[in-house]
Nucleic acid binder design. Structure first.
Lengths: 252, 252
DNA sequence: TAGATTGTTAATCGATTAACAATC
DNA sequence: TAGATTGTTAATCGATTAACAATC
């Protein structure tokens, strides 16, 4: 949509957009309909208007002050992250508990002491906090953020946080993405014939059960039987985004 | 599972595990059944055995050498990330094109020049590459990784990469997580009565259509009507993981 | 008016879950 | 044997998509 807007394309049909996005046009129309009735029959969607409406719905037109707590490499990286400003995020403050770090600067902002948290959250109306501390400090920092009035937390520490009702937490685990790649990589490589498993073990119910039964009957030395190559499931294949649950990466 | 293993709990039932994970026990059993028939009726699952089988299936028991290209703050942060080693990931090399960075060290490893890429990939059998370069360099680096033989790429640069068939790409956009938080935050705050929209605009088909029709008939000054508070959909509520598509964050 | 395209319904498809035979 | 619990089937639920009336 942004690309179309930059090329000054005035309108776009659900069919064109769907093709560009790789989704079904009916689904796209239905999704858009949740935002309101912003298209024109026989014409399509006004690009500028739709960009604005989607931006507004997603909260991109608002100013979102955020605090980043824990200014190590990752805190630094996030403070410098280019994508934030354009989406309405503004770094209200960088905070750290380590006196050796406090007073230094990152991305043009001074690193301030944790003790200033409460005042910053209040005066700048901060509702979103980012935790980039070591795992041991994360829950404590989280409690303090919540106490100060923050109601949304983005957690990069490898710790599952406990928060009261009404507070949202999102956890980013950088190694999960690598794990998903490794999982697919492993499948690309193909399984060794005599690792005690068969490709049939991954087939749906009845086939799998039959294969397992056969193998049990034949004893542990049973060889991999000749099976048709399983086609890659549509979901697990393309797309560069995160996948929510196992069913998206597991074979059909 | 790991926690149970550490407490030397010998077996666990699908019911117990499902309760702990907050999922349905039938779904859990069905998911496990894709891995094979690893439970015992009347008893449950052997904890150690299941941990091993799941680890193996996910590729956690393998050694995965990875190269990280682009050693800025984010590259540094990833090189130091603790969660990698325990999941079988090993940083085979840190690479950068900038002579000012080459020769420095991060996480105990020397930063080497991009020109060494091909040799490293070949000699260490690297199949996974991580891109933490500026956006402008990402596609070029990606092409070179693929050319060298890398078949899985984790991309932190805000660029959609084009790769040949058979190569997997996962894109991590750190600001998307913040956007999802901001989206929920906006909804928590509640909508302004006279912003020209109604909570009914978010209701499913017929209700929405009727509301829109009424508002058109009544003109632009129509006020927000009295509507029941919409209950938070199960999917959008708890959980600290990423969500794959809009249907997970949009209201029912 | 004829052609195009939306917004929505109804049909289809797939995922989740209740139920239960198998079996420890 | 009686109780427990798996693995799987069949029923249910929800999401996707084809189809089309509404309408520009």
């Amino acid at each position: 949509m942004t690309a179309l807007s930059e090329r000054s394309v005035p309108t776009v049909s659900s069919e064109e957009l769907a093709a560009a996005a790789g989704v079904n046009s009916a689904k796209l129309r239905k999704d858009f309909s949740y935002l309101g009735s912003y298209g024109t029959r026989g014409v399509g969607y006004d690009v500028e208007y739709l960009v604005y409406q989607i931006s507004r719905e997603l909260g991109l037109t608002q100013d979102w002050p955020v605090v980043i707590v824990g200014i190590g490499n990752l805190g630094h990286a996030l403070a410098n992250y280019g994508g934030f400003a354009s989406r309405g995020f503004r770094v209200a403050a960088l905070l750290d508990a380590d006196p050796a770090v406090v007073g230094s600067s990152a991305a043009g902002l001074p690193v301030r002491h944790m003790d200033e948290l409460e005042e910053i959250v209040e005066t700048q109306a901060v509702s979103i906090g980012v935790i980039t501390t070591p795992p041991g400090a994360a829950q404590q920092v989280c409690d303090r953020l919540v106490e100060a009035g923050v109601t949304s937390i983005l957690n990069f520490a490898p710790t599952v946080l406990t928060v009261p009702d009404g507070v949202d937490v999102r956890k980013v685990d950088l190694s999960i993405e690598l794990q998903i790649l490794a999982f697919h990589e492993q499948r690309k490589a193909g399984e060794e014939p005599d690792r005690g498993e068969s490709v049939l073990d991954r087939a749906p119910g009845p086939v799998r059960a039959a294969a397992a039964k056969l193998r049990r009957a034949a004893g542990a030395s049973a060889k991999r039987t000749d099976a048709k190559a399983e086609p890659e499931p549509a979901k697990g294949g393309p797309g560069q985004g995160p996948e929510g649950d196992l069913s998206a990466v597991m074979p059909a």
